[in-house]
């Protein structure tokens, strides 16, 4: 599904990713853990195609297609979805307007017909109910004045509506209380399917109690330094990242 080979990335002359290799298979939920500053968020931005990053080497393939040659919107249409750590506020654009514009843009890019308004509303309502998002929130400008938890739920709502094949959750647990964490995780778990892969980026193990991963990768110094099953997350929770820092110093 997703293959990253020897990815080297810098920003303003500072090397962030340093020959990173990673494979995520169809249906797999992969977790990436690592200390602050290890390059986790950079990885998510680079997959989604944010400017500002200079790709020095390597490739990112989604189902064999090179993502690095695509614009962010083309990547989205190809199935990449990034749930932002800090979702942006867009004053003046109602959430509904935004959702409809995004769905139809992707459908158009894939050569599908646009959704009819009743069909669209039906889908939004279904997803909103599941994520416990009140209707009036959808009428407000996107993310403007939303609480941290509301913003994250809005991200998952978008994921549910856009039906991407590869989902990245960037620190989705940050700023969530326990109830919000439960709602968001249930939303994500409901989307797990044999055709869809997830990359869950997190600093803490807590989220992985709710979204149980198939594989866990430890990121440090801009590359994957260790991979294993879900038990690796527990080990990290117990021992912290100190081992990895020392190994760097040595």
């Amino acid at each position: 599904m997703l293959e990253i080979k020897n990815l080297v990335v810098q920003i303003e002359d500072k090397r962030i990713l340093n020959g990173l290799n990673l494979t995520v298979n169809k249906g797999e939920v992969a977790a990436i853990m690592g200390p602050n500053g290890s390059g986790k968020s950079t990885l998510s931005y680079v997959i989604a195609g944010k400017e500002d990053y200079e790709i020095l080497d390597g490739e990112i393939l989604l189902d064999g297609e090179n993502l690095l040659e695509m614009e962010p919107d083309q990547r989205a249409a190809a199935g990449v979805f990034l749930a932002f750590q800090y979702p942006l506020e867009i004053p003046g654009v109602a959430s509904m307007t935004f959702l409809k514009a995004a769905i139809n843009a992707q459908r158009k890019a894939r050569g599908e017909d646009e959704l009819t308004t009743p069909d669209f509303i039906k889908r939004v309502n279904a997803a909103a109910t599941q994520l416990e998002i009140p209707k009036d929130m959808l009428k407000r400008a996107l993310n403007v004045g939303f609480s941290g938890g509301e913003k994250k739920r809005m991200e998952i709502l978008q994921m549910a509506l856009l039906q991407p094949s590869f989902c990245i959750l960037d620190e989705t647990d940050s700023g969530l209380d326990i109830d919000a964490l439960r709602i968001v995780s249930e939303g994500v778990n409901a989307l797990r399917s044999p055709d869809r892969a997830f990359l869950v980026i997190t600093h803490y193990q807590r989220l992985l109690n709710h979204i149980v991963p198939d594989t866990v990768h430890v990121m440090h110094g801009g590359r994957i330094v260790r991979s294993g099953g879900k038990e690796l997350a527990l080990e990290l929770e117990a021992n912290g990242y100190a081992d990895y820092r020392e190994s760097e110093a040595a």
């Binding site: 989604a48 195609g49 944010k50 400017e51 614009e71 962010p72 919107d73 990547r75 989205a76 249409a77 990449v80 979805f81 990034l82 932002f84 979702p87 942006l88 867009i90 004053p91 003046g92 654009v93 307007t97 935004f98 514009a101 995004a102 769905i103 843009a105 992707q106 890019a109 400008a141 978008q158 856009l162």
Partner: peptide, 21 residues
């Protein structure tokens, strides 16, 4: 970028933002 990451082509994303503005 946020809008493009949701699949809107650049011109369309620009239009949406200008309209909101």
């Amino acid at each position: 970028f946020y809008l493009m990451a949701r699949g809107l082509p650049k011109k369309e994303a620009e239009s949406l933002l200008v309209q909101a503005f």
